[in-house]
Design a protein around this nucleic acid. Structure first.
Lengths: 121, 121
DNA sequence: GCTCAATATTCGTTTTGGGGTATGTTTCCG
DNA sequence: CGGAAACATACCCCAAAACGAATATTGAGC
């Protein structure tokens, strides 16, 4: 019904203004949820770097996290204000085919030993 | 045909991440064009402050400027990439009724001695 | 030519944000 | 209970961004 969070426009745009955070968000829009090690691997950064920027997205309410065993899975918040979701979608459509966003998803697809999703038969 | 400029997503969002720049852009979306003194008056800041942030918007290609006598009129660039224009429109629709954006336009409407537009009979 | 009005830019300083590395916390497993 | 794995946080340092005030530029009018 009501979006759970109120997000200041300038805070929202500041969150999108960093490449690491934008790359994480784009990846999270391609997949229902991803854990930190997947995001870290896809982006090719060190883990504290990714964790720090994920924390900023979380504090703003753009993403939510869920613990499952050792892993913490992030997903795009399902209760975003409509205009925030709309801006994210417009941005996604515009950049999902560009660098470095395409490569990020390709690198993720080639990742071995991914938790959760890739259960073999 | 082709948008004249290529704008990096992170640069674009960084431009929107400052309140002064966002307030200028919202005002410029309500009016075909505005000069610096109008923007300065509406926002209630000192002139160098507004000029500096307008310069950043101009360097990014989000606005264009046109000199007419002593005044320099700014307007939202007519050749923005589609997704940039779409994000601006979504943002405008979301915030144009909120503070401080409504007040900015009210203050502007009450401004005396505006150049250009308000020619009396 | 001089002067004033509108705007832009520069300078010095302060603040904010990001990076790298080390360390802390939580959970699972044996 | 003692590891090790996954992730978060803290600390210190540097660079980019913003601010206030002063100054430079541009054009109009006389």
């Amino acid at each position: 019904m009501f979006p759970a969070v109120t997000i200041q426009p300038t805070d929202f745009f500041a969150a999108l203004a960093h490449e690491t955070r934008l790359r994480c968000l784009i990846l999270l829009m391609r997949h229902p949820e991803l854990c930190v090690c997947e995001l870290t691997h896809a982006i090719g950064a060190v883990q504290p770097h990714v964790s720090r920027h994920l924390a900023q997205l979380r504090e703003l309410g753009l993403v939510t996290d869920r613990r499952e065993g050792l892993w913490i899975f992030y997903r795009v918040s399902p209760v975003l204000p409509d205009w925030v979701a709309a801006v994210l979608r417009e941005t996604f459509d515009a950049v999902c085919g560009e660098r470095p966003f395409v490569e990020d998803d390709r690198v993720l697809a080639l990742m071995a030993n991914r938790p959760g999703v890739p259960r073999c038969a």
